[in-house]
Design a protein around this nucleic acid. Sequence first.
DNA 1: CTTGACCCTATAGTTACTATAGGGTCTAGG
DNA 2: CCTAGACCCTATAGTAACTATAGGGTCAAG
Lengths: 147, 147
Amino acid sequence: MPTRAAGSDSGIQPGSALSIGDLANAAETKPVTIRYYERMGLLPVPPRTSSNYRAYSEVHLHRLRFIRRCRDLGFTLDQVEDLLQLSSDEHRDCTEVDRLAAAHLQAVEIKIADLTRLAEQLRQISRSCRGRRTIANCRIIEALSPL
Amino acid sequence: MPTRAAGSDSGIQPGSALSIGDLANAAETKPVTIRYYERMGLLPVPPRTSSNYRAYSEVHLHRLRFIRRCRDLGFTLDQVEDLLQLSSDEHRDCTEVDRLAAAHLQAVEIKIADLTRLAEQLRQISRSCRGRRTIANCRIIEALSPL
DNA sequence: CTTGACCCTATAGTTACTATAGGGTCTAGG
DNA sequence: CCTAGACCCTATAGTAACTATAGGGTCAAG
């Protein structure tokens, strides 16, 4: 926190809290994103220092890393919220988690298929444009133009 | 326009202008999207009827279809604007069009690669969750949690 | 005349951040 | 002690490409 030891690049002192910058670095994200997650309700509001700085604990770091991991895997914030909820209920059956992950995987696979088709169309369009031409007889422009 | 012939599903009358709804249907988009494109400067402002309705010509339809085709292929509106500009200059060399299309294809291919890696990660994570378990020992939650 | 489909403008919302503005706090170094 | 730079804070607007909502006007068939 507002007591950075020389040579310490994380700013974490034994037993002391994390500043938002430290938390951001530890979770490989940015302070502005953390504030956003707090506003969205994904991260609990942390205690403050006397100078009104946020003071985070390892619990926050753990939770933020979970959120970032989910985001990196493409889950929406709504889905992340669901996963957080599910993960906090230890006695709960985990088929819901299973279902969420499977649905998301399917959505990603569909997106891949869409993009693959799109790429093929683009290749076809580009393939028809060879050498130096003018716009007047540009095959790409032609392909983009309606009948 | 405000004179729909019975049985005519497009509302287009010989020699008459198109309403925004007719234009939207003909280009397989929505009136609200067309107004948006007009605001963004992609579509020229059309003349109006005495009742302040927009009155579109076939030229507008042609241009809108071009825009939609580009959008369907994933070009950003900025890129579409560039392509429109390029396409209107008939004597221009078309290497710029070529370059735009190639850059876009590459971006799509990169996105496919990203998503493919992501899908594989999701498969690995899901694969580790078999049968009915509780959250306490859910392998998916475990995989989402930091060390 | 009524009603439902369509038109109009203005503005805010969606998603997940991100930029900007304006001001306070901390600390190392001179 | 002062300064400067790095960091903190809140509030708000912006990004991309639409889309929803609110409130009001026009058209035409029944």
